[in-house]
Structure formats: C-alpha cells, structure tokens
C-alpha cells in the first residue's frame, strides 16, 4: 500500500487510542479529586498529569492556577494545543478522511459521526454537563472504532498498520499512567495501608479497566507490587505493556518488508524481556527508571516503523 496511506492509518489509530487513554486519566483524576483530601493533593494529581503529557508550559500560558474545571477545559476541549481530546479526535478524523478509501464505509462513518457529535458535546459539557459520562462516551467511541475495524476490515496491511499504531500508543500510555500514579501514591518507596490508599489504587486500576481483573487474578488485597506486575508483565491483561508489545510484534511481522528486519528484532527482544521478566528485578532496578527506559524504547520503535514503512522511500 502507499506509504502515505499507511502513515495516516497508523496515526489515525494512535490518536484514537491516545484520546481514550486521556479520557481514562482525566476520569480517574476527576474521581480522585472527589475524595476527601486537601487541595494540595488534588493539585498534585493535575500537576502530575500535566507533567507526564509534557504540557505544563502550554497550560501555564493559558490558565492561572489549577482547578478541576480549568484542567478539564484544557485537556478535553481546548483545540489550541494538540494534546486535548478534541485535538486528538480532530487528528483521527483528518487522517481517516485522507485515507477513507482504505477504510470500510462503516469504519469511516463511525469516525466521522464521532467527530460530528463531539463538536456538539463540547457545549453541553462545558455548560456544567456530566463530566464522567463524557469520558465514558469517549472510551466507548474508541471501543466502537476498534470494534468496527476488527469486524469489517480486510486483514491486509491497512488493518495491521492501524493495529500496530493502536498497540504502540497503548504501550506508551499505560507506562505513563503507571509511572505518574506510582510516584504520586508511593513517593517514599513501597508501603501499604489505609482506606485512602485503597481508593487511590483502585482508581488507578479502574483507569485501565483492571480492577475486576486484579481481583480475578490475585484474589487478594491490592498491593502496589502486584498492580505493577499486572500492568507490566501480565500478557493476558489487554492494556498491559506485555500485551501491547506482544500485539505490536505480531502486527509488525505481518507487514514485514525488505528493510524492517532490525525493527522486528528489537521489538522481539522487548517482547521476550516482558514475557520472561520478573517484577522483583524491575523493582530492584527501580520502577521509574524501568518505565522511562521502556517509554524511550517504544518511541524508538515508532521512529523505526516510520523509517521502514511510512516515510516515502527514494527511487530503488
């Protein structure tokens, strides 16, 4: 397929995934801010979110101080910076529109109608509407897009590029969510206890749809170590790093070309490390350091995919 088409499919899927994870992070932050706690820790949550998205500077040029209302306006509907939900969805739709010939009609119409609806929701949510149902809506629309992709698209390159984009983005986003929450919740190393902790950890699990999964897998109290293990190493957990990389590796192999062998090798190494890794070793080396290095490797893999497939190659 055309390199430029593959590029747009890849980014279409990445932005849809990013919008969803953004909604997940915002939702959990918003819920946490409803727990009885000092304004200090409420701000900490929003500050952390701005920090992991590298958006502190952007935010400060627009708003004074942090309140949940301002943060939501900034992250959800501020189209003047590229990282808001509305900007992500605009990018999903613009990319899809440019390659609508490579999508099934149902995929395109799902994306287009999401965009059209989103533009009308902005008004009602900003006017004091129900914030949580908005985040739910964003999540469901991403589910819907993936569902339509999976149930209507031919298993060709277009399909694999879209899924490669989805899983690389998810790997990055889950790592970031885990990193920021872990640090926020455990500034001084590992410790357990207290009702507040319980709610914080369950909120984190909920943000990646993992609360029930945790219960099912561990049948025990929530501990930070197990949370990390679940979100990093369990490859049957669909939002974990392990699962995301396993799936990325699979889709990468389907689109293999004459110059992608090295990218495939590196992805395979990362997959094997996650598959055979132990949470004790990760904690020994430092969770934050581990996650930072993981995010860096995922970034490099994304760059390599661009170079191998997406950037127009010169005359052979």
């Amino acid at each position: 397929m055309l390199s430029s088409t593959a590029d747009k499919l890849f980014w279409m899927a990445r932005y849809a995934e990013r919008a969803e994870n953004l909604a997940r992070m915002l939702d959990v932050n918003y819920r946490m801010s409803l727990f009885p706690q000092g304004p200090q820790s409420v701000n900490q949550g929003w500050n952390a979110l701005l920090a992991i998205s590298d958006l502190m500077g952007e935010y400060q040029t627009r708003y004074d101080g942090i309140t949940p209302e301002k943060a939501l306006a900034f992250f959800a509907f501020d189209g003047s910076h590229p990282s808001s939900i509305i900007s992500c969805w605009r990018a999903v739709r613009e990319n899809a529109r440019a390659v609508r010939g490579a999508l099934t009609a149902e995929t395109w119409e799902t994306i287009n109608s999401t965009w059209l609806e989103l533009r009308t929701m902005e008004v009602s949510v900003n006017a004091g509407g129900d914030v949580s149902s908005f985040f739910e809506w964003v999540k469901y629309r991403s589910h819907l897009v993936r569902g339509v992709l999976r149930s209507t698209m031919l298993r060709d390159e277009a399909f694999h590029f879209a899924w490669l984009g989805t899983y690389l983005e998810r790997a990055d986003n889950t790592a970031r969510i885990l990193d920021v929450k872990y640090h926020l919740l455990l500034p001084g190393g590992e410790g357990v206890g207290g009702a507040a902790d319980y709610y914080q950890w369950s909120a984190l699990l909920n943000s990646v749809a993992a609360f029930e999964i945790y219960r099912k897998v561990y049948r025990d109290v929530i501990t930070p170590r197990r949370v990390a293990e679940l979100l990093i190493l369990r490859d049957d957990m669909p939002r974990s790093l392990s699962h995301s990389i396993r799936q990325s590796y699979f889709h990468l192999k389907q689109i293999r070309n004459h110059q992608s062998a090295e990218t495939e090798r590196r992805m395979g190494v990362l997959d094997a490390e996650l598959h055979f890794g132990r949470i004790e070793d990760i904690f020994q080396a430092g969770l934050h350091e581990y996650l930072m290095s993981f995010i860096e490797r995922v970034y490099e893999l994304g760059e390599r995919v661009s170079k191998d497939f997406l950037v127009p190659t010169e005359v052979a």
Partner: peptide, 24 residues
C-alpha cells in the same frame, strides 16, 4: 484502486512509480 497525491508518485527513467510500504 489507490488514491494518490502527487507526492506519492515519482518518475524514473520515464516510468511512473508510487511509493509503497514495500518499495516502488
């Protein structure tokens, strides 16, 4: 069929090619 823009195509030795994920 593929929908292309000018930048997706190039000419070499009087033949036209499109840039694809598997080469020209």
């Amino acid at each position: 069929v593929e929908l292309v823009e000018g930048s997706d195509l190039f000419v070499k030795d009087h033949y036209v090619y499109m840039r694809t994920t598997r080469g020209p």
